[in-house]
Nucleic acid binder design. Structure first.
Lengths: 333, 333
DNA sequence: CGCAGCGGTTGAAGCGCTTCAACATCGACT
DNA sequence: AGTCGATGTTGAAGCGCTTCAACCGCTGCG
């Protein structure tokens, strides 16, 4: 920096002002400084800058599962919102290791990020909350007491499924559960309660977020008697498994049975599946998380808040009215 | 840090030694310092540390497409290898914007990362090469002249496809091209050359890395006369599109026509598809990239090198011997 | 007794930047 | 002519850490 100042024939402080494009520099000197910097291949040192400025102008994102495309879109929202405020976004991934997750959050604190966003929190809630006391911290996709949270209204997602089925005229419905997966409880309870409230014949099968779980649940359903006419799956992958198994047994979808997924993943969009599903506004979740971060950075110290975003039905070709000509009680028609 | 030193009754320098767990500190004082740090909730400031140490002990990864699961596994390899050497990994994503990609590389330079890895380079090669002169820089998945590169041997991938088809006894084969997508040229040329060398009847259809391209290519193929008995698709998504369209027309796979994808994505693993495909050793690519980075960090200044990794056939249920009883010349049998 | 050697510790300089009080310059206004 | 404000510019202090030469107090040796 001294070299640049010397080359441009100004003081070091002036170079600094130029680098932070302060308005109080004559355009002629600014140009001279910029030229000199270019000439010398000078690059400001951000470590030194954040040390001096006491802030880094960047926020850290702890992305628990790089393989899960769900979060990619959330990050799009985060980065777009951050970029609009001149903040940089730095990501790291603990690869689903809860212990590592906390470490990486702490690493971001040591890096003096201005804030941290955790996507798909798996670490101990109390430790996350403790970190939240050291630095603005918002969690996306999971409910962690004591910190700011942005979540999908999964309970409402379950209700939407029931409403969709009811509108199509279904009476006997079932849900394949997502086990301990994120949001699975809420989806199940929302579905169950809404179905009961409408007087539908409802059934829940245990499962998890895998294709195999979907296949097995269909087998159980078949063993247990007449198939329900509509099947709400905990997520798209489960739905794919169920669809596959239904096809094995010769059931036509949606004539014999309607299938509804959750998440609107790229899978559901494949022509072959054209899976009706329920979308979570991921991009919006990212934006909301960033808005909350900005508030905290600006000095808002009010109690932690929870933002709920609303899921939305994406009807495709796997749901329809139950066909009266089909009796799926005893097998394929 | 002064506070910690005071609380522990030692000098600031000693605290620093403890924080870098130097061996020259008595275990009693070490404990006292650690306790005091804990007490005061002290966290070392890594910005200050990298300023003083002149290195950050972290490497930056520019991940061009967060939505592409391909890179997730590469990053697994990178992080595992980095962690083994006590390096942190920081990721950021330009979201396929070439201009932004360069900016983010430069941002990592300003952050004084020890090295940068670019996944799926889209930026101007000359600017990447220029950045490579300022900092150790390795590119994964694309060929950029003047920098270290780790790539899959896509040409060999095309050859493997031919070998597979030939071993199954196919005579008339075709390829749906990936257009300008990464590695598409090489896959196509490898396939073509190997097929010609074996005297096969070979045909190439233009395409791109989309489902629609797969569907359309099948339509073209049908319009052009008798279907080849084996179809090598530029990647899995294209193959899914092709499969779907073949199914629409009533062709049985693999009896009437074999279909081979590329990438071994999660799609190909779905039971419904069980798509035969060609796998790229992604994790290994990450490790290799990291090894190269470590060499450069250690001071290796030899000419840029290119590491080629070998693809591998993953046979599933969409490829088989052409069935002599099937004549697919005039439509489904 | 003196000194080398050693584990352990200290003070101070410096990493590259920001920032602030203070200063210089100059045109405009009383 | 003198003063004031606006506009630019400067030097120096300080951000939180590392590191190195120097130092301290001790043991063990000749």
């Amino acid at each position: 920096m001294d070299d640049v100042a010397a080359a441009a024939g100004v003081s070091r402080a002036l170079v600094s002002l130029v680098m932070n494009d302060s308005p109080k520099v004559s355009s002629e000197r600014r140009r001279r400084v910029l030229d000199a910097a270019d000439e010398l291949g000078y690059r400001p040192n951000r470590a030194a800058r954040s040390l001096a400025q006491q802030r880094s102008r960047s926020i850290g994102v702890v992305l628990n599962d790089l393989h899960n495309p769900f979060f990619a879109e959330v990050i799009d929202g985060i980065t777009d919102a951050a970029r609009a405020d001149g903040l940089h976004v730095l990501i790291n991934s603990p690869n689903r290791d809860p212990e590592l997750e906390i470490e990486l959050v702490e690493n971001f604190i040591e890096l003096r990020m201005d804030a941290v966003v955790v996507l798909g929190a798996r670490g101990r809630p109390d430790r996350l909350a403790a970190a939240g006391r050291e630095i603005p911290l918002v969690v996306v996709g999971d409910n962690v007491p004591g910190v700011d949270v942005v979540m999908n209204n999964d309970r409402r997602g379950g209700e939407i499924a029931v409403e969709h089925f009811a509108a199509l005229g279904h009476q006997r419905v079932a849900h394949i559960d997502g086990g301990a997966g994120g949001g699975a409880f809420e989806r199940r309870d929302g579905f169950w309660d809404a179905a009961v409230a409408r007087g539908l014949d409802v059934k829940v099968l245990p499962g998890e977020y895998t294709e195999t779980a979907g296949r097995e649940a269909v087998d159980h359903l078949l063993a247990a008697g007449p198939l329900p006419t509509a099947l709400f799956c905990a997520n798209d992958v489960v739905a794919i498994g169920a669809l596959d198994r239904l096809d094995d047994h010769g059931f036509r979808v949606p004539d014999a049975v309607s299938v509804l997924g959750y998440d609107n993943t790229n899978l559901s969009q494949l022509r072959r599946f054209s899976l009706s599903t329920i979308d979570q506004p991921r991009y919006r979740m990212g934006c909301l998380a960033m808005e909350q971060v900005l508030k905290r950075i600006a000095g808002d110290t009010s109690d932690p808040v929870t933002h709920l975003v609303e899921p939305e039905l994406v009807p495709r070709r796997t749901t329809g009215s139950p066909s009266p000509s089909h009796s799926n009680a005893g097998g394929p028609s």
